[in-house]
């Protein structure tokens, strides 16, 4: 439970950064922090108290294994997160070339 609360706090840190920061790179970092809090939550979904790594060898019949499926999901989600972060960074650097700044207050061509 404690870890769940910590993970929620990490999410709030990311959300705070996303809302208050005005720098493109910091926005990207805040999004990554939010994503990682979600990965920790997903990991906790599969966790069982006292569980061991799910490598089933058949030696110990009473062993309790943690759920391996969320771990596989997190690995996939991390790869996707890497792709989105790389894409965001590439666009941010391109924007920097056009405007010579990372400040979103000066990057306002479109009305939304």
């Amino acid at each position: 439970m404690t870890v769940n609360i910590l993970c929620f706090i990490l999410f709030l840190v990311g959300l705070y950064g996303l809302i208050t920061r005005r720098n493109l790179v910091k926005i990207v970092i805040s999004l990554s922090i939010m994503e990682f809090s979600l990965f920790i939550f997903l990991e906790l979904v599969g966790y069982i108290d006292g569980g061991i790594a799910p490598i089933i060898t058949g030696q110990d019949a009473n062993a309790v294994y943690v759920d391996p499926l969320p771990q596989a999901m997190i690995l996939t989600a991390i790869v996707i997160g890497l792709a989105t972060t790389a894409m965001l960074m590439a666009i941010a650097i391109r924007l920097y070339r056009k405007y010579k700044t990372f400040d979103i207050r000066e990057i306002k061509n479109l009305k939304g």
């Binding site: 493109l24 926005i27 965001l88 666009i91 391109r94 924007l95 056009k98 990057i107 061509n109 479109l110």
Partner: peptide, 14 residues
């Protein structure tokens, strides 16, 4: 890769 395209894409991505 003009100014508008990049800005729109950044917004879309966030």
């Amino acid at each position: 890769v003009g100014k508008n395209e990049l800005e729109a894409s950044f917004k879309y991505q966030v």
